Amino acid sequence: MNSQRTEPTDRVGFIGLGNMGAPMATKLASWSGGLTVCDARADVALPYLEQGADFAPTGAAVAERTTVISIAVVNDAQVRDVVTGQDGVLSTAKPGTVVAVHSTISDRTAEELATECASRDVEFVDAPITGGAGGAEHGRLAVMVGGSDIAYERVRAPFGCFADLIVHAGGVGAGTAMKLARNLLHFVAFTAATEAQRLAESAGLDITELGKVVRHSDAVTGGAGAIMLRENTSPIAEGDFWLPILSHVRDLGEKDLSLALDLGARLDVDLPLAELALARLGPGLGVGVSNVPESA
Rank of each mutant, 00 (worst) to 15 (best):
A63Y: 03
V213M: 15
T92I: 02
C117N: 03
E123K: 12
M178A: 15
V74E: 05
L285S: 03
D256L: 06
V145R: 05
R156E: 09
E231F: 08
H102G: 06
M178T: 15
R140A: 13
P244E: 07
A224T: 14
I71F: 04
L243G: 07
M228H: 12
V220F: 05
G146Y: 03
R250K: 13
F55L: 09
D256C: 04
D87F: 05
L185E: 10
L271E: 02
G96V: 14
E209H: 10
A151Q: 03
V122S: 02
G88W: 02
G135A: 11
A224R: 14
G16H: 00
T208N: 08
V220T: 13
V82L: 04
G18P: 03
T208P: 02
H102Y: 05
V44Q: 06
A63V: 00
A224Q: 11
R11C: 08
I227N: 06
L229I: 10
E123F: 13
L165F: 11
S70G: 15
D43S: 09
S290L: 12
A200K: 04
P57A: 08
M144C: 03
S148E: 00
R120F: 03
G264H: 08
E116C: 03
S234D: 12
F159P: 04
G173W: 00
D81S: 10
A200W: 01
H216G: 12
S295Q: 15
E195K: 06
A45T: 09
R215S: 13
L199S: 07
A163D: 04
L246N: 02
T92K: 01
P272H: 13
L141I: 07
D81N: 15
A56C: 15
T58F: 00
C117A: 11
L49Q: 10
L185P: 11
A219N: 09
I207M: 05
S148Q: 04
L185W: 11
W31T: 03
I150G: 12
T26E: 13
A265K: 12
C161N: 13
G239A: 00
